[in-house]
Amino acid sequence: MALAAVHENSLTAFENLSSLVADSMRLVDALIDDHLKSDIPLIEQIAKHIIYSGGKRLRPALVILASHIHGHISPSTIALAAAVEFIHTATLLHDDVIDESDLRRGTPTAHTVWGNTAAILVGDFLFAKAFELMVTTGDLRVLQILSKTSAVITAGEVRQLVESHSFDLSIEASLQIMGAKTAELFGAACQTGALVAGASDQDALDFYHYGYNLGLIFQITDDVLDYQVTNDARGKVPGDDFREGKITLPVIYAYQMATVEERKFLNQTMIELNQTAEDLNRMRHLIESHKGFEKSLALAADIMRQSQPLTHKQGDFKVLLNGLLRECLTRNK
């Protein structure tokens, strides 16, 4: 399917992207399956448990899209898309252990089924497999970018562990953690996908910035949805951030305006994790009353407006990616 035709039909941007990359994603899935084969069945069981649990597969799709814009989806593109998916999956396995999450997309997390040690070790295995796939591209720039990205993601995890369970967390620090944990891989997926298709360094860097902004907006709206959606079709359990005591943007905005009594409630539920069944609804009302959701989405909209213009050659990419950005901003409606 030609990209110029994709945005002329009635599909959403997410559906357009999925349709556009469907054939390539089948190749990516086949490559993933091949690289998960092991003499140790537990590795394949745990990895497939999370890889095929119903996520949008947005990061590998962005790799393919960025290559497609330059008219050349090669074996390197497919290998790179699989590598990006492995990196993402590894971080999810580690995240769920750190956050002590019981469910992901409505399915029991790997560590609740097989234990913390197995989940962490399989995450490490997937990181190793990602770098094995990167080497096949033969592009040192890809290795440099994704090596740096992996380090940034891990550093973001450590920073979140240290800072994100305190109301001392600022808006700026929260955005930096989101940038490290989420947006950096979105940006790297776009940048490296463009590079292996022959894009100039500057064009690829433009793609990085759009991908990075998409990642930030995706995470901000996800944090809003965690409180606003009561029946999430994506399989995410609403209220997880609250139950885990995660200080996200809507909560930070609410805390800034909260009364002394409200701050006492926030500390009790989010820091001490002393929660009752009614507290989630009370938290929703508190955030809404102090415009925490509204301010978070306004910040996301501002990030979208700040996206730099692309060249004429990349115009179709901008149309589709801007569609994804808009859908991220409105998926709580």
Rank of each mutant, 00 (worst) to 15 (best):
S10E: 15
A13T: 03
F14P: 00
S18C: 08
S24W: 11
M25C: 05
L27V: 03
K37L: 11
D39S: 12
Q45I: 02
H49I: 03
H49N: 06
G54S: 06
G54D: 04
R57L: 06
P60N: 06
A61T: 01
V63H: 04
S67W: 06
I73R: 01
I73M: 03
L80I: 07
F86Q: 01
F86H: 01
L92C: 04
L93E: 10
S101L: 05
T109C: 07
G115M: 13
G123F: 04
D124M: 11
D124H: 12
L126P: 02
I145W: 00
S147P: 01
T149D: 02
S150N: 07
A151T: 13
V152I: 15
V152T: 15
R159F: 09
Q160C: 03
E163T: 10
I171K: 14
A173L: 15
S174Q: 10
L175N: 11
M178G: 09
L185H: 02
A188L: 02
A189P: 00
C190N: 04
Q191E: 14
A194D: 00
S200R: 08
A204L: 04
D206C: 14
Y210V: 08
Y212C: 04
Y212Q: 07
I217W: 01
D223T: 04
V224E: 02
V224M: 05
N231D: 15
K236Q: 11
G239M: 12
R243C: 06
G245N: 08
K246S: 07
P250T: 08
I252Y: 11
Q256V: 13
Q256I: 15
M257T: 13
E262T: 14
F265S: 09
N267C: 07
Q268L: 14
I271Q: 07
E272L: 12
L273R: 14
Q275K: 10
Q275L: 09
D279G: 05
R284V: 09
S289G: 11
H290M: 11
K295Y: 12
D302I: 00
M304R: 11
R305Y: 01
Q308K: 15
Q308P: 00
T311G: 15
D316P: 00
L320C: 06
L324W: 03
E327Q: 09
C328P: 03
